[in-house]
Write a protein that binds this DNA or RNA. Structure first.
Length: 297
DNA sequence: ACCCAGGGTCGTC
DNA sequence: GACGACCCTGGG
């Protein structure tokens, strides 16, 4: 599935323009539940922070524009972050052949790409996601970043902050972390940060592990259960075989594929059998479809 | 005003 | 395995 996508690139005025890129739609990418630091502007563009940078991404007449990015940043950061070396047309082609449900989901979220996000940030973000709502999750992550991250700069009329380092967050008190609106998860966050800072949990080595070992290691962290671990695998470790089963995926799977009441683990196993190496991509298309359409509510 | 659910996990039984 | 609790907040 690895293949440089065909597109025309233009660099001008601290701006990158990608022409002829079909499998890229900002709304699909940023609303499919994989990230929490991108916000939609009134004109439909998205502003977000990633890898110590703040940029605005928009699409018009088939051309995607990344503002506040030069050629160097594009090559060193955004090419990888937006997973531009993966051919999503091929992935979608295979998935669409599965059945009519996946065909509809892929057609609906045709511009989805799975971002390559920073492992530690994803880990903390999805600990916060447990029994929480997406707007609240975004708020909490924004609070933590403003309080404990570093100022990146002013853009779009506001200040932007990077996601905090583990050592900095580990040094904060549970109460202070809680006051960032993280609720009962504050103690998990603090403990997770301590584990990362002390290398009791060695993220560098987890990156090198196979899927089973990496997942097992993540599950040692308080606040990380099966679902959160799978999200970290998919979004923070680029393991496309992971299939996180959350409330939305459960609903859409029950609607299309399995009997009601099946355990989350069995739903995950079913999906892996059915979608195999593309399970993670299938999860994203199904999640986006289910949530936008309100399936099963 | 009250109730409920939200990208689940944990502790207990 | 099955249940209930859990910070907090927006929406019914």
């Amino acid at each position: 599935m690895k293949e440089i996508v065909k597109m025309k690139l233009e660099f001008e005025n601290n701006k990158v323009i990608m022409r002829g890129i079909e499998d890229f739609d900002p709304k699909h990418i940023f609303d499919c539940g994989q990230c929490f630091r991108w916000n939609e502007n009134e004109d439909g563009s998205f502003t977000g922070v990633a890898r110590e940078r703040v940029v605005r991404v928009s699409k018009k007449d088939g051309a995607v524009t990344i503002e506040n990015a030069d050629e160097k940043d594009f090559n060193e950061i955004w090419m990888d972050y937006f997973d531009l070396k993966t051919d999503y047309s091929k992935i979608k082609e295979v998935l669409e052949e599965q059945d009519v449900y996946l065909k509809n989901s892929v057609e609906f979220g045709y511009g989805i790409r799975i971002l390559k996000q920073e492992l530690f940030e994803i880990m903390i973000s999805f600990i916060i996601s447990a029994n929480n709502r997406i707007p609240m999750i975004k708020k909490a992550i924004g609070n933590l970043s403003k309080e404990y991250g570093e100022k990146i700069g002013d853009f779009d009329g506001m200040e932007h902050y990077s996601f905090p380092k583990a050592e900095v967050l580990a040094a904060a008190s549970e109460e202070d972390i809680k006051s960032c609106k993280t609720g009962f998860r504050a103690k998990y966050i603090k403990r997770a940060c301590e584990m990362v800072a002390s290398k009791e949990l060695d993220l560098e080595s987890i990156i090198e592990m196979n899927d089973d070992d990496a997942r097992k290691e993540l599950l040692k962290v308080p606040g990380i259960g099966p679902k959160v671990a799978d999200c970290i695998m998919l979004f923070g470790l680029s393991r496309p075989r992971s299939f996180p089963v959350d409330v939305w995926v459960k609903r859409v799977m029950e609607e299309f594929y399995v009997e009601e009441g099946m355990s989350l683990k069995k739903i995950g196993d079913y999906a892996f059998d059915k979608f195999g190496d593309l399970a993670g991509y299938a999860q994203q298309y199904l999640f986006y479809y289910a949530r936008e359409k309100g399936i099963g509510k």
